[in-house]
């Protein structure tokens, strides 16, 4: 009995010490260099950062089909891509959803959504959340702006008014791109916004 108790006590201590060393996983922060990835787009082909040879930067947007916030920003994401891909900053949208929990976010549904909303950018399916786990976005939509060296320069919201594009006062992503274009670091480098929480396995 005594030996058993000791064993259990020992196991508990081990568990506790392990717990104190296991910090919650952290995603890319400002200044981190992002690893390239290759994900299947709604056009059926795989896409990576490397294919944009002339890119001055990349607008990575974690977004999805059914989140009301993501839907409110669809047109604004299209506009970002249309305006800035010509200037060397393409949008790459990534759906981070776990399809087991959210069947409405499957690859087929993504294809439908991109057609219905006439997406002009690559909308990529992160099947096993491999890329999502590296970035660790907390909600959709969630933007990571990278410079041409794939270093994270801005993280957060597209602008300061989800519900009304007309009432926007601060266009965070646009200002951040303009700063990058001038060789400066964006301010603010990070912003907060409401969105649909992303469940990461």
């Amino acid at each position: 009995m005594k030996a058993n108790t000791l064993l259990i006590f020992g196991a508990l201590c081990l568990l506790l010490s392990l717990a104190s060393f296991t910090k919650p996983p952290v995603g890319y922060k400002i200044g981190d260099k992002v690893a390239d990835f290759s994900l299947k787009g709604v056009d059926g082909k795989n896409h990576s950062l490397a294919e944009f040879k002339q890119a001055k930067g990349y607008i990575i947007v974690f977004t999805c089909n059914e989140c009301p916030y993501a839907q409110m920003y669809e047109q604004r994401i299209i506009q970002l891509h249309n305006k800035y891909s010509k200037l060397g900053y393409p949008v790459l949208a990534i759906n981070p959803s776990l399809v087991d929990y959210f069947p409405e976010e499957s690859y087929d549904e993504m294809v439908k959504r991109s057609k219905a909303s006439k997406f002009t950018f690559h909308y990529l399916f992160d099947k096993n959340q491999g890329v999502t786990k590296l970035f660790r976005p907390s909600k959709t939509p969630h933007v990571f702006l990278l410079d041409k060296n794939r270093v994270v320069k801005y993280i957060g919201a597209i602008d300061d008014n989800p519900q009304s594009a007309a009432a926007v006062k601060k266009k965070y992503v646009e200002s951040a791109i303009e700063a990058l274009n001038k060789g400066k670091n964006p301010t603010p480098a990070e912003t907060k916004a409401i969105g649909c929480a992303i469940k990461i396995n």
């Binding site: 909600k139 912003t191 907060k192």
Partner: peptide
């Protein structure tokens, strides 16, 4: 109030808007 980036800090320093 749509300007979450301004008021989020009153909830918690570490809160980034997920509900």
């Amino acid at each position: 109030d749509q300007d979450v980036n301004t008021w989020a800090i009153n909830i918690d320093n570490n809160w980034d808007g997920a509900i």
